[in-house]
Simulated scan of single mutants.
Amino acid sequence: MQFKTKMIPLAGAIAFAFAGAASAQEQVVKIGHVGPISGAIAHLGKDNENGARMAIDELNAKGVTIGGKKVKFELLAEDDGADPKQGTAAAQKLVDAKVNGVIGHLNSGTTIPASKIYHDAGIPQISPSATNPKYTQQGFKSAFRVVANDGQLGGTLGRYAVQINKAKRIAVIDDRTAYGQGVAEEFIKGVKSKGGGAEIVAQQYTNDKATDFNAILTAIKSKNPDTVFFGGMDAVAGPMLRQMKALGINAKFMGGDGICSEGLAKLAGDSMADGQVVCAEAGGVEEAQKKGMEDFRAAFKKKFNADVQIYAPYVYDAVMVMVEAMKKANSVEPAKYLPELQKINYKGVTGNIAFDAKGDIKDGTLTLYTYKGGQRQQLAVTK
């Protein structure tokens, strides 16, 4: 009896030792995600965050071993409110939390200032949606993006306006953000590169929180444009379309990926005529990837009871690419897996992902869309 009572605590100690050894073999890897979860484009920020969450959940369910240790991935999600100051504060918070890598930010205006903070800390950053060329022109070896940039996006839209839409009199509005201004400038370059008698008849400016556009639209109306290009986000584009209709401006409306969401039709109400809007998404899948993208959208809908807005698949791929680099390096340490990230070649939901020397995606695709019956419809996939 005495022998047994002495053995019970000994057995407990052995079990505890084994449990401790097992837990010591598991390592927690923190991946940060930053996007606007509050404010006018919170629906886009949540879409991005859900893409990251989907990837993290799948990786944990499947089980990943790196450097001989089982990995448990944790998502540290921060809200930058699409505001540069809030964005840098969020970036510093993730650095202080010693994250192993960062996916984000959504907007160019938050991604660019945050990128210096990550670079100085030696933390790899992959943006799934920031398109301003300046992001990857800073010489930061830690900065990557998985979508085409504004040079490709705005230029393609400008050429489309002249060649396909046969635009002659074009008005341009931008919201003065890094993204809006950048894509508008590239659009103008694209228009001018094609000639064809097309003319920029007006340039006006607003901001990313504006709701009243009557003054700038009235000024534009006097120029009798056949096309209005807007560099900005869908939360502003929707009300702008409503006010264009109220003022009797029956021009084509064009914009970049910021307006090219599933939610634009709802934001515009009944003011958007079929085929009036042409926009481009800084990404897109060609025929071979269509089935994979359809499967992703269905799984996303089942998991979150929400449709993909724009960039959830690119966020998902960005997480998977980062983890693939960790596997190849056999390390979760940023300094060790960063070289593998720079030379990665990964087949994702959105297509093949490989980066050039600057961190831009190689052979980035674009998808042109219009809207009919309130639904987004694909026009073409191009490079």
Rank of each mutant, 00 (worst) to 15 (best):
C279T: 00
K252N: 12
F296E: 02
V319W: 09
A318Q: 07
A265V: 04
V321W: 07
A312V: 07
K291C: 02
D295W: 09
K302W: 05
M272Q: 02
K303V: 13
Y316S: 05
G283F: 08
K266C: 12
A312E: 03
E286L: 11
M322Y: 12
M254Q: 13
C279D: 01
L267T: 05
F300R: 06
A312G: 08
G255R: 01
K302R: 12
K303F: 11
L264R: 02
V319G: 04
A312N: 06
E287S: 14
V277K: 01
D270F: 09
D295F: 08
C260T: 02
A318G: 10
K291R: 10
D257S: 12
A273D: 12
Y314A: 09
G255S: 03
K302F: 04
A282R: 03
E287G: 13
K302L: 01
E262W: 13
A282W: 03
D317N: 13
S271P: 01
V278W: 04
K303L: 11
G283K: 04
A273T: 11
D317S: 06
D257V: 07
Y314S: 11
K302Y: 03
V308E: 03
Q276D: 02
G263E: 15
M293V: 06
A306S: 14
G284L: 00
A298R: 14
D270H: 13
G269C: 09
K252Y: 12
S261F: 05
A282P: 03
G284W: 01
G263A: 15
K301D: 12
A265Q: 03
G284A: 01
D317H: 09
N305F: 10
E287D: 15
Y316M: 08
E294P: 07
N305C: 10
A268S: 07
M320E: 15
K266G: 15
I259T: 06
A280W: 02
S261Y: 07
Y316V: 07
M254D: 08
K302A: 14
A306K: 14
V321A: 09
F300A: 05
Q309L: 12
F296T: 02
E281Q: 14
A273P: 08
A282L: 03
N305S: 15
K290V: 11
S261L: 09
K302I: 05
A268E: 02
K301M: 11
G275S: 11
E262H: 13
P313Q: 07
G255D: 03
I310P: 00
A288E: 13
V278Y: 06
M320S: 15
Y314M: 12
K290I: 04
V321F: 10
V319C: 09
G256K: 06
A306H: 10
A265S: 12
D274Q: 10
K301P: 04
E287A: 15
F253L: 04
K291E: 14
A280E: 00
G255M: 04
A282M: 08
